[in-house]
């Protein structure tokens, strides 16, 4: 069991995602016992005491779904090839969500502070050193200075990445959006007035032939509809929207998305 605990600690240290499946209930026909386990990481079984091959395959498949949903759950199984039934608890050990804040202006400052409270791993990116620096962002995990769209190319983006485009103008937001719109990010939000966003999306359709369903992934105007007035309130509405997307909530987005 020590090796399993070690493996779990290591996963946390690396910031990796994994699922620990534990049999919590079983009848006598299935050949498994409560307490038996199986640790799944990167689609493979890494450790554990469950030996039934068919059950392991079923667990692998379910683990993938659990990880995608980021929700731990108790799941009943018919054990393949037997009359037996088992209940398996899937504990999701999620990779910590990563927030990339593009544009280090007046909204970014409260946004990064609040994001750290929410346990995001936060990267701030701007092309101006006088904005993207430690004095303004003491809590940020990473501060990058350089051409924003160019720098985004070099950043690893996963299904646990949330990207907030709040640069000083559409001239900068658009090339950044073009860089990430086809990627696997869980959330992409872009600031701007309805009119400018509409124009931007029209250019994407006409000139770049970007498919409608790809464009529809973008949360723009960014944030939840809470009638924000100050930069701090806007930051809050943006972060609330990322949580809505992560957890599957029903609050009203300014973009009209469900």
């Amino acid at each position: 069991m020590d090796s399993l605990a070690e493996e779990l600690i290591q996963i946390k240290r690396e910031g990796a995602a994994a699922v620990l499946a534990t049999v919590t209930g079983a009848d006598e026909n299935g050949g498994v016992e409560p307490g038996q386990k199986c640790l799944v990481r990167d689609g493979k079984i890494r450790a554990g005491s469950i030996r039934d091959w068919a059950l392991l395959q079923a667990i692998l498949k379910e683990a993938e779904a659990r990880l995608k949903e980021e929700r731990s759950k108790l799941v009943p199984f018919d054990i393949p090839g037997t009359q037996g039934k088992a209940e398996v608890f899937f504990e999701v050990l999620p990779s910590p969500p990563k927030l990339i804040v593009v544009g280090a202006g007046h909204i970014a400052v409260p946004l990064v502070k609040m994001a750290k409270i929410l346990d995001y791993h936060v990267t701030v990116l701007d092309d101006r050193l006088q904005f993207a620096n430690r004095e303004r962002f003491p809590d940020a995990d990473e501060i990058l200075v350089g051409d924003m769209a160019e720098t985004l190319k070099g950043i690893s983006i996963t299904p646990w990445t949330y990207i907030v485009l709040i640069t000083r103008g559409h001239k900068y937001d658009e090339p950044c959006l073009r860089e990430i719109i086809h990627g696997p990010a869980k959330y992409i939000g872009m600031i701007g007035s309805r009119r400018r966003i509409k124009a931007c999306f029209q250019r994407f359709r006409d000139e770049e032939k970007i498919a409608e369903e790809v464009i529809q992934r973008v949360h723009a105007p960014i944030g939840l509809d809470i009638r924000t007035e100050t930069p701090e309130e806007i930051a809050l509405s943006i972060l609330a929207e990322t949580i809505k997307v992560r957890r599957g909530g029903a609050a009203q987005s300014l973009s009209g998305k469900q």
Partner: peptide, 25 residues
Amino acid sequence: MDTIYDQVKEFLDKGETVAVATIVS
């Protein structure tokens, strides 16, 4: 940040048995 498994490991290393209680539903 320490996880609950860091704490579990400490007890296991001392040769103790612990119980992990999880809300499953």
